[in-house]
Design a protein around this nucleic acid. Sequence first.
RNA 1: GGUCCCGUAGCUCAGUGGAUAGAGCAACAGCCUUCUAAGCUGUGGGUCGCAGGUUCGAAUCUUGCCGGGAUCGCCA
Length: 608
Amino acid sequence: MSGQNKKMITQILADQFVASFKSIYCQDIDRNLVQVEKTRKDFTGDLTIVVFPFVKLSRKSPERTGNEIAGDMMKQLEIIESFQIVKGFINFTFRDSFWITQLSINPNDVDRGDSMNRPEHGVNLGHPIVVEFSSPNTNKPLHLGHIRNNVLGDSVARILEASWSRVIKVNLVNDRGIHICKSMLAYQRWGNGETPSTAGIKGDHLVGKYYVRFDQEYRKQIRELVDTGLSQEESEKKAPLILEAQELLRKWETGDQEVLDLWNTMNQWTYEGFDETYNRLGISFDKIYHESETYLLGKKLVAEGLSKGILQQREDGSVWIDLTADGQDEKLLLRSDGTSVYITQDLGTAELRYDEYKPGVMIYVVGNEQNYHFDILKLILKKLGRDYADHIHHLSYGMVELPDGKMKSREGTVVDADDLMDVMFRTARDVTEELGKTGDFPEAEKEKLYNTIGLGALKYFILKVDPKKNMLFDSKESIDFNGNTGPFIQYTHARIKSVLRKATQDGQERSFSKDHLKQLLPKEREVIIWLCEYPAVIAEAAKMLSPAIIANYVYELAKTYNQFYQEIQILKEPDPDIRNFRLLLSEKTADTILSAMHLLGIEVPEKM
RNA sequence: GGUCCCGUAGCUCAGUGGAUAGAGCAACAGCCUUCUAAGCUGUGGGUCGCAGGUUCGAAUCUUGCCGGGAUCGCCA
């Protein structure tokens, strides 16, 4: 078998279009302007090329141009059976034999062209890609917003790995800072030495409980101070609890053993909780950074910037960068007490990561609320002469909103990640049992199936939405299992597998002679065309960093297959060539569904 | 106020320069003696936020306005 990459049919058509245009009109046209699309349902044909952009050069009417070009293309490419011109559109129909041949091509052997040709990340072929995602705080459990981040980051990593190069998944855990000290302080005050095991609570939830407790008590103090006549702002700064938390942070930074012990203990609880959640979500990392180990790194860069005169130090000792010339404000990089802020440590970790992996691109999966932060980060790195700043890409995704607005941890309006997965599991169980599908399943297999379905529904629900858009989650309306959903696609896969199992039991041969296939039925042809599109879809998803493109594709594929399944018999088809052809078509569809869902991080069951 | 993002069917979302703007949900009407009905078929539902501009052609690009969100901390 040759590993030679095969061109996609769209590429073959586009290339021939360019060649035919040249031979007829003696003009070179821009290959990128040749759009090859699937022919719309209401017209006859398989693929369509739009000729409008080229009529200036042909100096003939769209119909005339189309006819001349398509006529020549048909002479050159024997795979074209016929064409029809409608206005400025050439609708090509290919021979059945061609489509049948396409079915046997492995999508991995297909040349997908440049999948990363966008300027932001079209660089350094052969270098790995670093994808940072998740990056939780250790003071509270994960919620739905984190799930979007994790599921998105994981899927993007899978898509890039499949289409471009080695991917290193990294997680930068935010394990220090004032917010962690808040949980610690509340625990010192009100914890009575409870632990996850004595309290019977998952570690991250236990820590989160004290974070919430801190906030409640803190607010109480603020109210009291406001009542004595202080301003809101002043009260927030002067409340004893916040002062104590700040003191705790200072002690942490000076290495106070007692504080470090508590910090270690509580973080450990959180990590154990997180690991459980990550496991359940099916998410893993190649490298985990801890902010406690990296937060000092940026200072070297600051010192360098000062010596180069890019940064300025004020009388109080704080260090700033003046970005007014770039249309931004002045930005603080070191506090007057010499400690670093968020962006400072991010400068340091970017440098560390670049030195460690020399990546072709560093992708940060971070919510769009931090757009400004990343603009500034790149700008500062650029000014410091770091060329890799051009290869930093902020994959900025939208917020998950609830019917009454954004999720807020402290107001208790968050949808907890663990709770949500529990709900999804139970719903999957209830729906499945109601349908009476799993009567003969062993208990362990049921458990696994309900997890697969529940998680599939959740992940698909999130991933089918364009990452950059905000999305709405209404907990009153549970996530659907019918229509454009994960379970629908999983079900299609399971049903195909069931047919294939029966075919194997029957001992039927899977081979067929394509000469004996008289004519493809419209639905058979439609499914094949969708299958052929898969490589281009992966490329597009990689280019756009958008799992939604895969999700919407695999839904269309499953839907089309279901129509085929509905109206055409497979096992009962008497002609063995036709039957085996349909089995192959089904098998390829199942493979493609499996592969596409895998890129979304969603498993598909053999039976459901 | 400055900057950025979003506005498509009752709801959730596709479509981002090409043909008469599509799905799912919800509603209604059909299809299981036939390979898994988590399925399939049909019906109704739209001034693509509004107004101008560019183009042979605009939901898509551009300008302005309206509506929603984010952000502009010695928080992360």
